[in-house]
Design a protein around this nucleic acid. Structure first.
Length: 914
RNA sequence: GGGCGGCUAGCUCAGUGGCAGAGCGUCUGCUUUACACGCAGAGGGUCGGGGGUUCAAAUCCCUCGCCGCCCACCA
């Protein structure tokens, strides 16, 4: 509580004039954290389930980028909202060991030192990575802290922690025992730079300009055939010719029917291969005949399996040609392509080439071109896991926001392919499988075995590979809570509530967590999946290191403050849609923070000594129209924002709060209050309303701008006795909520209509005053400070008389003359009509009649068009009979209003012209 | 080849059946006793094109056009 006690003053002259986020944010964060506000606190309402989020774990050695910032912001908004609602709230943070990514970073470091991991050896290398992790882990943590994340750091987890590693091991063993993990030789995506297999998801396909080469294969001569004949195929990867073991044609293809069963000669290698028929071949592409290389192409691999073809690996794991490649052995794959083509040309077998766009797979991590290769790997059989995960979404146990991603999720789940989980790396969870040197049995066990489970042999060797990074993060929602142990946290906080992340990792992470959750826990890991869009640069490009277009959130926070960044990220888009981050918007949010700061400074300064404490909204006694108006607006705001938060419409909620604070509280009520505070009769009540409304607004805004609001809030309450404080800090203060009676008492349409009329009149007078002064300025006459005003109020007369002072002060008029009907209308005056009220600003010594007539004509024209439009609608029998009655009635009122306005404007014009 | 999203003011984006909105930018004023990171006022859009449904469409349906993304084994 120390920080709060330091705050003893709210004197205007002692609070800095401009909000300085740097001075406020870090101390506040430490204060929150040291006071334990981020820990879950039991709810007073036992019927409410705890609200829990597992934070998507960032790469342990990474730097914070805008993707993390938007994730952290949206999650913190939800967490803070629920904490204020009084829910038991838990946000579990952590980091991911990020297998390939981290290993690559450290390898680069080693390269700089002129060494590599093989020189170091496995153990020393892993040791080295741990050092690196120790050095960088705190970076991402502290960068996250700067964003204001109110997560429970005491429950922080790391995917390579002992506990989480145990979860990984348990899952592997269990799935193996269930027959859902198996080892198989398949064609896989191989990254020759990472020297590892990667999963289908980790391959990025890019359309690349290339060549389609047409190559003739000589046919083995049939009996009695003298002339040499050829069969021609098209290929984008000529070097794979060396590994061809067949040529395939479509069985229906008339051109080749008579060749099926015959043999062709692989150029250069002079190997005889069969011509086979397979339905996978598209007759219309290329020549309709396909070379088949089972060792280096997924489709060919399948054709090979169907036809029992031999696989000849001609490209090695390091992307160099194998001895099987004959004269090209040892050459790089692209070098071999060039050389082979030259050789084909020399042999007269390269018929021609054409430009062709090739979809090329690249390694997601290092962008190296993927080589499809046959290799022994570990796999998860995913179909049995996908079904429950699919059903959880299908039957509404888990809802996706926005719902259009249902289809993306379901389509993937329905067509799911087995997951290659082994990686030929050193950094990660080692695969818990041991091979027996005696009998060859594979022992998969929870504890490291000392002898073969089959033959008892002691020559055991552990599989050298590690598991895909996602094999640990798919357990995140329960492994972080203590699973496989039956811990209190696991029982209390699983399933979690909302999973919030970018839509770009639906398959990588979200879908797999759904599978793991349903399979191991028997229930989906979250009831809601909220997917945000990607943050892009000004041109709409994805931010990336290589493009150098990334905006560094730390720099943004240095410059504008965390709250400004958070508010911008939260309000710049809608769920699932990408955001082009615009620095001007951040600037706007920074200005908003400053606006609130100064409004608060003013309110606290003005109300000092007048009003101790802050009455609740229900206990206020509004005395004026403006009082009732601001409370009505505030009541509606509270209602709307709460609803929007429940609907995950955080952007809209933030914008509403912005509009209220700036355009209603500051622009109007604060200005009105300046006058009311001068009146002894109104002072106390006005001060109370100013403070109470500010208090509520700060609470509503807190999830979006936690630092600024907390700082002001503790100043605001500092003169109230401690036992009156709603809470020791805004972060745990109650979320504003109005019971039905209070809502009914505060929200009042008639009041809002009355005030809207007043605003219309005041704005109108300001406009006329400005035009008068512009004209005077042109004529080199001194400007008028105040103008005279005559109002014909009609049935609104008493309202206007009550509010005359307000009009005078806010519209800068002399004390206005207000009559039901003016006995004599001023002949030389500017005029306007608003909801049946006529307003005249007489201009004695200067008047540009032509200009005023033109202005009136514009207004008359607009009124006439409006009347026309309404008349036409009401004349339409279909409208009158079919539209909802209240819509028709509203239209009638609108017409009456416009007609009245039109008539009065025309009258004003006649008098002016006449 | 399938699927999804976007196209609204000069720019960045809200709005998803009932007379088009915000911020920034523009123009004009302003030391009005919180804020020039401000105040006041103004101007600016046939809501991508076409068709349909409806009393009524930016909003629902169809279609076309760009721009972007995701998925997919045509070499």
């Amino acid at each position: 509580m120390a920080l709060h006690e330091e705050t003893t003053t709210r004197r205007l002259d002692q609070i800095p004039k401009a909000y300085d986020p740097q001075a406020v944010e870090w101390p506040l964060y430490q204060w929150w954290e040291s006071n334990g506000y981020f820990r879950p606190r039991p709810s007073k309402n036992p019927d409410r389930r705890p609200f829990v989020i597992s934070m998507p774990p960032p790469n342990v050695t990474g730097a914070l980028h805008l993707g993390h910032a938007i994730t952290a912001t949206i999650e913190d908004i939800m967490i803070r909202y629920h904490r204020m609602l009084g829910d038991e709230t838990l946000w579990v943070p952590g980091e991911d060991h990020a297998g390939i990514a981290t290993q690559t970073v450290v390898e680069k470091q080693l390269a700089k030192e002129g060494t590599d991991r093989h020189a170091l050896g496995r153990e020393a290398f892993v040791e080295r990575v741990w050092e690196w992790v120790g050095q960088y882990k705190s970076n991402i943590q502290n960068q996250h802290r700067r964003l204001g994340v109110s997560c429970d750091w005491e429950r922080e987890r790391f995917t390579l922690d002992e506990g989480l590693s145990r979860a990984v091991r348990e899952v592997f063993v269990r799935l193996y025992e269930e027959g859902l993990i198996y080892r198989a030789e398949r064609i896989i995506n191989w990254c020759p730079r990472c020297m590892s297999a990667i999963s289908d998801l980790e391959v990025e396909v890019e359309e690349t300009p290339g060549l389609l080469s047409y190559v003739r294969y000589p046919l083995e001569p049939a009996e009695g055939e003298a002339e040499p004949r050829y069969i021609m195929v098209a290929t984008t990867r000529p070097e794979t010719i060396l590994g061809d073991t067949a040529i395939a044609v479509n069985p229906e293809d008339e051109r080749y029917k008579n060749l099926i069963g015959r043999c062709a000669i692989v150029p250069v290698m002079n190997r005889s291969i069969p011509i086979i028929a397979d339905a996978a071949v598209d007759q219309s592409f290329g020549t309709g005949a396909v070379k088949v290389t089972p060792a280096h192409d997924p489709t060919d691999f399948e054709i090979g399996q169907r036809h029992n073809l031999r696989s000849i690996q001609v490209i090695d794991f390091d992307a160099r040609m194998t001895p099987e490649a004959g004269p090209f052995a040892g050459q790089d794959r692209y070098e071999a392509r060039k050389n082979l083509k030259a050789e084909l040309e020399r042999l007269g077998l390269l018929d021609h080439e054409q430009d062709y766009t090739i979809p090329l797979g690249h390694c997601e991590r290092c962008k190296t071109v993927i080589e499809p290769l046959i290799s022994m790997q570990w796999w998860v059989k995913t179909a049995p896991l996908a079904t429950p995960a699919l059903n959880a979404v299908r039957y509404g146990q888990t809802k996706i926001v926005p719902p259009r991603f249902n289809k993306v999720y379901s389509d993937w789940m329905e067509n799911i392919r087995d997951w290659n989980i082994s990686r030929q790396l050193w950094w990660g969870h080692r695969i818990p499988a041991w091979y027996c040197g005696d009998c060859g049995h594979i022992t998969v066990a929870r504890e490291d075995p000392t002898a073969c489970l089959n033959c008892g042999g002691l020559k055991l060797e552990q599989d050298p590979d590690v598991l895909d990074t996602w094999f640990s993060s798919w357990l995140w929602p329960f492994s972080t809570l203590g699973w496989p142990d039956d811990t209190p946290d696991l029982r209390r906080y699983y399933p979690t509530s909302v999973l919030e992340t970018g839509y770009d990792i639906i398959f990588f992470w979200v879908a797999r967590m759904m599978m793991a959750g349903t399979h191991f826990m028997g229930i989906a890991p979250f009831h809601t999946i909220y997917l945000h869009g990607l943050v892009r640069d000004k041109q709409g490009r994805k931010m990336s290191k290589s493009l150098g277009n990334g905006i560094d959130p730390i720099e943004v926070m240095d410059k504008f403050g965390s709250d400004a960044l958070r508010f911008t990220l939260a309000t710049s888009s809608t769920p699932g849609n990408d955001t082009k981050l615009d620095e001007n918007r951040i600037l706007g949010a920074r200005n908003f923070a400053n606006k609130i700061w100064n409004a608060s400074r003013f309110v606290m300064g003005q109300t000092e000594g007048i009003a101790g404490g802050i009455p609740s909204l229900a206990r206020l006694a509004p005395k004026t129209l403006a009082d009732r108006w601001i409370l009505s607006r505030l009541a509606r705001l509270t209602d709307d924002v709460t609803r929007l938060m429940e609907e995950y419409q955080f952007g809209e909620a933030g914008r509403r709060i912005f509009d209220f604070i700036w355009s209603e509280y500051c622009d109007w009520y604060l200005e009105v209050a300046k006058g009311q505070l001068q009146e002894p009769r109104l002072r106390v009540c006005t001060a109370h309303i100013l403070r109470s409304a500010l208090d509520t607004a700060l609470r509503l805004l807190h999830p979006f701008m936690p630092f600024l609001t907390e700082e002001i809030w503790r100043h605001l309450w500092s003169d109230a006795p401690e036992n009156e404080w709603p809470a020791s800090a805004l972060i745990i203060a109650p979320w504003p909520s109005l019971d039905g009676a209070t809502m009914a008492a505060l929200a009042d349409t008639a009041t809002e209509d009355d005030f809207a009329l007043l605003q219309q009149i005041i704005t109108g007078i300001r406009d006329m005053r400005k035009r008068i002064n512009d004209t005077r300025d042109e004529q080199e006459l001194p400007k008028l400070n105040r103008v005279a005003a005559l109002l014909a109020g009609g049935r609104r007369t008493s309202l206007l008389r009550q509010q005359a002072g307000l009009i005078e002060r806010l519209a800068m008029t002399e004390p206005p003359t207000i009559e039901r009907k003016l006995a004599e209308k001023p002949s030389r005056a500017m005029a306007l009509v608003a909801s049946g009220v006529e307003v005249y600003i007489p201009v004695a010594d200067l008047f540009d009649i032509e200009r005023e007539l033109a202005r009136l004509d514009t207004r008359i024209e607009a009124a006439r068009a409006a009347v026309e439009r309404s008349r036409k609608m009401l004349a339409n029998e279909q409208f009158v009979t079919r539209a909802k009655p209240e819509v028709v009635q509203k239209e009638r009122d609108t017409l009456a209003g416009h007609a009245d306005t039109l008539a009065r404007l025309e009258e004003q014009r006649r008098e002016l012209a006449g």
